[in-house]
Amino acid sequence: MITYLFKRLLEMIPTLVGITLISFFIIHLAPGKPTDVLADLNPKMTPEARERLEKYYGLDKPIHIQYVLWLKRIAKLDFGDSFSTDRRPVWTKIKERLPITILINTLALVLIFIIAIPIGVSSAVRPYSLYDKITTVVVFIGFAIPTFWLALLLMILFGVNLHWLPISGLKSMGYENLSALGKIWDWTQHLILPMTLEAFGGLAGYSRYMRSSMLEVVRQDYITTARAKGLAESKVIYKHALRNALLPVITLLGMSIPGLIGGSVIFENIFSIPGMGQLFYQAVMMRDYPVIMGILTIGAVLTLVGNLLADIGYALADPRIRTR
């Protein structure tokens, strides 16, 4: 297992380098030098300050050296300072917004898992039945409705008309004066809508994948054998088939992380959640290159970590992998 882990970690390195290359390419995609923007934003920027900045970003050097320099800095989590007027270090800005994005995405993922697996399994058990058709349509509704629109409808219903849930943000007024339990409850209430929506949108992918994975397993010989042995159908499905059908879904877990992170741009904007997606959108609109690069890199690292976790899970569940 340890060698396997080590191997996987080793494999991540070239991917990581590749990701930084792409981020680096993006910053150089824009016309002009990245420091032009900063200089343009500050009419009083002196030539010396500009030179200093260009040196900092190594813009006076050939491009491959620039890349190496940049790589060295990000290895120390030094993504430079934001171009916005606050000039704060990019890592500080990302750091304060990272936990909430991870939290919401993890919770949404858990929710998806809890709902999608039973749906997928049960529709695979009765393929093409009315139940299968209804669930198919329902999960696709989640996928096909533009999320920001559905979000607004739910906000109107639960927030304005029924007053059951807060509309946006993370905390209520007077949050500081709540008890610890009250604080958790307050957070939970704020997270219900964004989480549910995110989960609803992701349901289709998982439940359909689960369904086809299950369909495949059910056709296998050992299931036929189990049935022939006279095992109860529920036991066949949930004990024998499910375990094997779940394996490929674990891989999907890792692969769906970039999609979830990308989706947080929309959620965080509509629900005023101060996460990474919101920061990224603001940075993109202001052409705050250091922040853009920082988030692209961090987002990719998150994905890699997610993939790794999924692989570990897979390895734990399937001994064949470990020994390979």
Binding site: L29, P258, F280
Partner: peptide, 15 residues
């Protein structure tokens, strides 16, 4: 693999 690990929507947005 690399392209799959970058959040695509971020990439689209940036570009």
């Amino acid at each position: 693999d690399i392209m799959l690990s970058i959040p695509t929507f971020f990439l689209i947005l940036a570009v």
